[in-house]
Amino acid sequence: MTGGAVTMRPPGPLPAGIQLTPDGQLRHFLTIEGLPRALLLEILDTAESFAGVKNQAVKKVPLLRGKTIVNLFFEASTRTRTTFELAAKRLSADVLNLNINTTATVKGESLLDTLRNLEAMYTDMFVVRHADSGAAQFIARHVAPHVSVINAGDGRHAHPTQAMLDMFTIRRHKPDFSRLCVAIVGDIMHSRVARSQIHALSILGTGEVRVVGPKTLIPAEVENLGVRVFHSMADGLKDADVIMMLRLQKERMQGALLPSEHEYFQLYGLTEERLSVAKETAIVMHPGPINRGVEIGSEVADGSRSVILQQVTYGIAVRMAVMSMAIGARAGR
């Protein structure tokens, strides 16, 4: 953590209190792990109501009028930041985008000082993206009581709003999770998205969850989360209803973990041919941005089973739901 005087605790099971209010409402949204199924369903149902706002002539609702939301991004991101910003604006909140690499930390201001300053500006919510696992939790532990924190991705730990928009997309196409076989494909090891997806799928009672990828990219302990591990695409995709591709982070190529991009595509790239063993009705998802010709072929990414752009659209409604629930949970306190 840049210049912080307080050491950051590693992520792990959260004390039950931190994410929820005493009466069980969402106060911060840091990780899916440990949240009750009813709360995940409430997020999905609320998002379903927000999904209609884009059809209005005036594409916004006045719910968070007068609230100020700060996008606190310590790590680059275009899609996530943009959809959070749009979600906040469609709720009529005011949005401040801070790219921390280029502001005060360069001048030596500590993270906690930055937080105190933002709180002193009467802000209501921090949306945090950080390269270190546990960063959002750290911030949630140290913010003033009137501020909510939403994790927009922390290191390898969690990306809960991405997982929820994935669940929303799945539910739109296949409403009964208990009958689904879902395959998560790619770099599970370094993926905060995969971790959050696995927790969400398991809490929602998904029939079968598989992870598919090379041995070097699947952590040994992943089976403890109740998933089946496959190292071959043919076996892992067989009869799957949902295929969730992960982005292969090219920086991993430099280590010894992976062969070349070309070789990876030969073994684990999603092509029409590989997809043929999945169910006829299978949908293909990807959190973006996609590496065409590395983890997914263009014919699949742009094909009829791809719901990748729907994920982007639904991401706005899901983030509207989470933001309004977290700010609403403070009502009357």
Partner: peptide, 23 residues
């Protein structure tokens, strides 16, 4: 219409957990 997103008492009572889509 579900007017939950247009209520004037959101900051007092918070989100209606049973909001339905307007159509």
């Amino acid at each position: 219409l579900d007017i939950s997103f247009y209520r004037d008492d959101f900051s007092r009572v918070g989100m209606n957990p049973r909001v339905k889509p307007s159509h």
